[in-house]
Design a protein around this nucleic acid. Structure first.
Lengths: 228, 228
DNA sequence: AATAATTTTTAGTTAAGCCTAAAAAATTAA
DNA sequence: TTAATTTTTTAGGCTTAACTAAAAATTATT
């Protein structure tokens, strides 16, 4: 008994830091640098140092000065809760409110801080328990487990292979709008026809149509799974 | 030309103050006292004084020290925007998320600060342009007009008259739960059978069933319209 | 009208979350 | 391995929105 019956209150700022540290440490098993956090929070390194000490005091991160930071199990749980809310709200905005996939990020950044577990459970049910958000990112479970989808980057697909667009590794509006202009969206069928050594651009046929060029920069940020 | 192309940013705290000043000045045409604001914002009078000066500097209230405060036209517009968002979100929570009318106030207090005009327009359409919230309160129009519904207080209805429950003048959870226990909800048909001089309680038949007692305190907070 | 009680404001603090500038540590290069 | 560069931290400040305690203005009472 004892221990954590009640969850400690988290401020808006604290939640943002935890979410960003989570994002930066996804995949890698290395500590996250102060500067990296500063860039994503849009603050200065000195402010980050302040906050990291505070988060460490609350037990949400492991932080040794000059050594970078890493989420503690409790911190990761909080971060996954925020990510879950963010992605569920994104599904709501696209599926129910009729927004495009490039319009929902900013609004979800606000909605992710609404505090009500019941609301999130009801929203999840209302949306029929989606597995991914409008960008193909997996939605963590209520218990805090992030599904591992194991997608590949389009840039790593061999010539001659076919695949399906399953997600994006970046959700900036300009990137998403570019994909839309190129007729790319979740579910698009892609077949890699050629990789150009010069600029690493690739010629890809989209849904069986004549091939178009996709820059390496774009291909790096497209997530696919190989066709059957 | 010139003037207000862009709306000035409002903080969470400022929005709450404006909303509360609006609520306190609804109906009356008198200035609102510092103490009254302090009570509803759950702060101290000294803190309110600070904030009123700030709001006055921004042109959202008219405030003369010791004379109380009143919303300026711009302040009222902001306040009506917040109230609109609050009430639309309440409709969403009850109609789409399946909450009861006594559960939505706290969550809507958070959602009302989400900043996106487009979202509110889409939400309004999604809810099919509701005229009132789950407590019968009118929803201000996009242009900032609060419909005047002209309901009466049950406490003011004469013996022998019949009426329909159209709203409540208080949305605390305990009050709403009491109404629910008494089988009272929006649309209930009420007929006033007797007013007891002793405690001003009234005997009311609800939807044709045998009369029950309703305290004056409760009757004051029930809004009705007379049956044609 | 003078005094008492109440309300409101002022003055001085505090905490959160940010900032800049300077110092210290870590890393990279010569 | 020392020097230069980069990263990170410390120190000191600022702003917002709160607080307490004391002073001033208003309102009520005798």
């Amino acid at each position: 008994m004892s221990s954590k019956q009640f969850k400690m209150a988290t401020s808006f700022a604290e939640e943002n830091y935890l979410k960003i540290i989570y994002r930066l440490s996804e995949g890698h098993n290395e500590d996250v640098s102060t500067n990296a956090v500063a860039e994503l929070t849009q603050t200065k390194a000195a402010s980050v140092t302040d906050m990291l000490r505070k988060l460490a005091d609350k037990g949400w991160v492991n932080y040794q000065k000059y050594q970078g930071v890493r989420l503690s199990p409790e911190g990761e749980k909080i971060a996954l809760g925020i990510v879950r809310k963010h992605r569920l709200w994104e599904v709501f905005l696209v599926e129910k409110m009729g927004f495009n996939w490039d319009e929902v990020h900013e609004i979800a950044e606000q909605l992710e801080h609404i505090e009500s577990d019941t609301l999130i459970d009801k929203l999840d049910a209302f949306l029929e328990f989606p597995k991914t958000d409008p960008h193909g990112d997996p939605i963590p479970s209520k218990s805090g487990v992030m599904p591992e989808l194991g997608y590949l980057h389009l840039a790593d697909i061999r010539v001659g292979k076919s695949c399906v667009l399953m997600g994006v590794a970046k959700d900036s509006a300009v990137f998403l709008q570019l994909l839309t202009k190129m007729n790319l969206s979740l579910g698009s069928g892609l077949s890699v026809q050629e990789i150009n050594e010069f600029d690493r651009s690739i010629a890809v046929s989209i849904d069986g149509k004549p091939a178009v060029f996709i820059s390496h920069e774009v291909a790096k940020n497209i997530l696919v799974k190989l066709a059957q």
